[in-house]
Amino acid sequence: MSRRSPEPLVWLLFSGGGMAAALLVPVLLVLFGLAFPLGWLPAPDHAHLLALVGHPITKLVLFGLCALALFHWAHRFRYTLYDGLKLKQASTLIIVVCYGAALAGSAGAAAVLLMA
């Protein structure tokens, strides 16, 4: 592989995404999926959450999580299509669709967060 190949970069995004998702998503799921709805913890009200999401650091963390997790998915799905479905002949199309979807999703996440 040439030294200019993007593979190391997309792998770093994949790797970082896996790590970020594994650390943060379970916490968010337990809090917002179980602890708040079931009343284990007092649920924050809407204004409180909106203020929290409005903080630049929260926005940055949430954007990082969304973008990295999407690139993690893109990389994994690309190789699932390559090896699992044996579609490596269509690799250019697969690369464009997978990483394109991750880019579009990240842009969407950025837009939602900026509007919050």
Binding site: R3, S5, P8, L9, W11, L12, S15
Partner: peptide, 10 residues
């Protein structure tokens, strides 16, 4: 090794 190689590539 992937991490090492990715960091060198960066």
């Amino acid at each position: 090794y992937k991490l090492t190689a990715a960091v060198s590539a960066l």
